[in-house]
């Protein structure tokens, strides 16, 4: 039995904890290129799970399957008690209100101001909120990320780190129960990357969210992970705490720390 197997066999969570997200036997291929193959994962309430893998290993495909942007070929995805793959369009919209998604490219609407970017999901889903409540929520989220002064600015006027913070504020605006982060620190300098990682942990503690974080930035992994999943050949090759994974003797795990 190699180290990876031993790590995977470790009891990773207490049995009484509630799984908010369960992925079973997920398979996704693009033509002959099998990206995910028999992938299994459970994410528990208030837990940050980091999915670690090489570029092109299928990390982003995984979270795009969870949110319904891609349809897997096989397997099941259960999010907050709902079978995502069985949901119709309206059902998918409803579950998406409970899931936040932070894009690698931030994906801020560049024709809208910061305020309009944050208001956009609320205006569409929280119609019972009056203008004062909407403004209060926008101000709360911008204060969380320390960028209240940018409220009337356009995304193009902001630096990369500021855009990432605004994107995080927009992700949190509907107060989701689960957040999916797609390489949140990629393209940022080390200081800003550290600030974003710290902010992610703070927001997780404040709003009690569960998260899947896609990353190969080891500083971000160390700062945010409750558990780490190493994705190799489309499978969860190793699962464990950051310390467990860090000490692994498995060559395919060790390469991430070299």
């Amino acid at each position: 039995m190699d180290t990876a197997d031993r790590i995977a066999e470790k009891p990773v969570s207490e049995p009484q904890r509630t799984a908010v997200l369960e992925i079973k036997q997920l398979k996704k291929a693009f033509g002959s290129n099998v990206v995910l193959d028999d992938f299994n994962l459970a994410v528990y309430r208030d837990e940050n799970v980091v999915v670690l893998g090489r570029s092109g290993s299928g990390k982003s495909v995984l979270i795009k399957c969870i949110i319904g942007l891609l349809k897997p070929d096989l397997g099941s995805i259960n999010v907050l008690g709902e079978d995502v793959l069985a949901l119709d369009h309206d059902g998918l919209d409803h579950i998406r209100m409970r899931i936040g998604f932070l894009f690698q490219s931030n994906a801020l609407y560049d024709s809208m101001t910061v305020r309009e970017n944050l208001e956009f999901p609320m205006r569409r889903h929280l119609k019972n909120m009056n203008t004062d409540e909407v403004n209060e929520r926008v101000n709360e989220m911008l204060s969380n990320v320390g960028l209240l002064h940018t409220i009337d600015m356009m995304p193009s006027e902001l630096s990369g780190g500021m855009q990432k913070r605004i994107a995080l504020a927009r992700t949190l605006i509907l107060k989701p129960e689960i957040i999916l982060y797609d390489e949140p620190t990629t393209g940022l300098d080390p200081v800003t990357g550290r600030e974003i990682s710290t902010l992610m942990v703070e927001m997780q503690e404040k709003y009690k969210t569960s998260s899947i974080i896609i990353s190969h930035d080891m500083k971000c992994v160390k700062a945010t992970a409750d558990r780490v999943v190493v994705l190799v050949d489309g499978k969860a090759h190793a699962i464990g705490s950051y310390a467990d994974i860090r000490q692994s003797a498995d060559e395919r795990v060790k390469q991430f720390f070299e």
């Binding site: 949110i67 319904g68 942007l69 919209d93 409803h94 998406r96 209100m97 899931i99 998604f101 894009f103 994906a107 801020l108 609407y109 956009f120 999901p121 569409r124 889903h125 509907l174």
Partner: peptide
């Protein structure tokens, strides 16, 4: 994609 995942 961001618009789609925000339920629009």
């Amino acid at each position: 994609d961001a618009m789609e995942v925000s339920g629009t």
